[in-house]
Design a protein around this nucleic acid. Sequence first.
DNA 1: ATAATCCCTATTGACTTGATAGAGATTTAG
DNA 2: CTAAATCTCTATCAAGTCAATAGGGATTAT
Lengths: 144, 144
Amino acid sequence: MISQKARYALRALLYLAARGDVTPVQISEIAESEKIPRKFLEAILLELKKTGIVRSHRGRAGGYALGRPAKDISFADVLRVTDGPLALSPCVSVMAYRKCDDCFEETVCAIRKALLAARDATAQILESRNLATAAQQLRRSGAL
Amino acid sequence: MISQKARYALRALLYLAARGDVTPVQISEIAESEKIPRKFLEAILLELKKTGIVRSHRGRAGGYALGRPAKDISFADVLRVTDGPLALSPCVSVMAYRKCDDCFEETVCAIRKALLAARDATAQILESRNLATAAQQLRRSGAL
DNA sequence: ATAATCCCTATTGACTTGATAGAGATTTAG
DNA sequence: CTAAATCTCTATCAAGTCAATAGGGATTAT
């Protein structure tokens, strides 16, 4: 299961993508529109900023905007920031590989083989879905 | 990421599958062979038993055995017991559906569409991998 | 009977999650 | 230049989950 933080992050980013504006949007506006606890959202956007998914402007007319085109921000990008690796085991993570603590012989591990296949399948989907395609779906369903 | 519990469960079950025996195997034997804390393994096997994945015999020559043929125990079956639903969100879980707490309109949710596709991909893999195929892989690699 | 086994409940410490508080740093408008 | 509005940062909190342990109780083969 994804965390509440991931949900909030995706909703906030989708809000920015759907708005499609160039001028920065304030935290309060996002928080109210998407019903996200304001202070929690601050922390989330800060993290997203560190990885370049959003950028910010400080001061009077400040706020947040997407850090790159919506089509270049995948669901996988976001989930990796909020929830860590997509993989079901460190030993099959591509972005954050680590040997399992008590692994005997990785190349032979039958559990690993299954988890690796699962990771590839998940990553394939989550990397192909991005904020642009998602926003487009919303428009088509008449939700915007 | 899967839990340590899931790892232990898979290892223990794979041990039973590889042994392929009809007579029950004792907890201590599994725990020692697979280096799993004995008491923790007890709790895990008990849970697996409740869902029929293993069956047990009590008393003097007691122990555990697979509850059905190894080819009918998938990785998905096991992970659902130890770690809950495979889905990344309750609203896309097939075995344990639940509406998201703050969901506005499920049919329109763009996040849901992506998570649903991810669930299907993961489930497809994890339901097709079972203890028999895994044990066979071990034999082929000469690990048995 | 007895010894070996599974069965059950409770407890623990470490860590994570979701959320909140309060002050600091920066920028724009007037 | 000053004030107000914003983002930035650190600290804290309660509740929950995870991994592991402990100590018996129930059952059964011999």
